[in-house]
Amino acid sequence: MEITLGQVLALLGAAMAVFLPGVGSARGVGMVGEAAAGVVTEDPSKFSQTLILQALPGTQGIYGLLTGFVVMQRIGLLGGKLLPLTTYQGLLVFAACLPIAIVGLLSAISQARAAAAGVGIIAKRPEELAKGITYAAMVETYAVLSLLASILMLFGLRFS
């Protein structure tokens, strides 16, 4: 089978959709983890509350992976029969991956900052955990919107 530039571009898009939000989430979860470790050093009873906040910036990585899977499925990689994509078709797939790749990376870090601030709420007023989660979860909206855009674009493309 001859490999086309279109196929390379499509896979590059899938790779970016996975690795950029993945990097963002890893950094984000790490940041909140550091702040949470600080709180738990002084007050171990706050472990479970801080853990919830730590998990929040992790979702972007999952959205990226999901988008990556959709690309693989759409271009036939999962079935073992890669479609012979033209360069322009490949570029379309690449473009469809951009929303989640970029918004995923940046929103994970922004969300981590909000969640780390939420860890501060738990340090002071553990009963207000829900508010801390809500603030951080607001950032999630934009990660979800970009996931939606990427997925709709990918399902809208026709390759035959």
Partner: peptide, 13 residues
């Protein structure tokens, strides 16, 4: 300052 700040937020209490 993430770790130190988390710790200090408890100590401020």
């Amino acid at each position: 300052f993430l770790y130190a700040s988390g710790r200090i937020k408890v100590l401020e209490n």
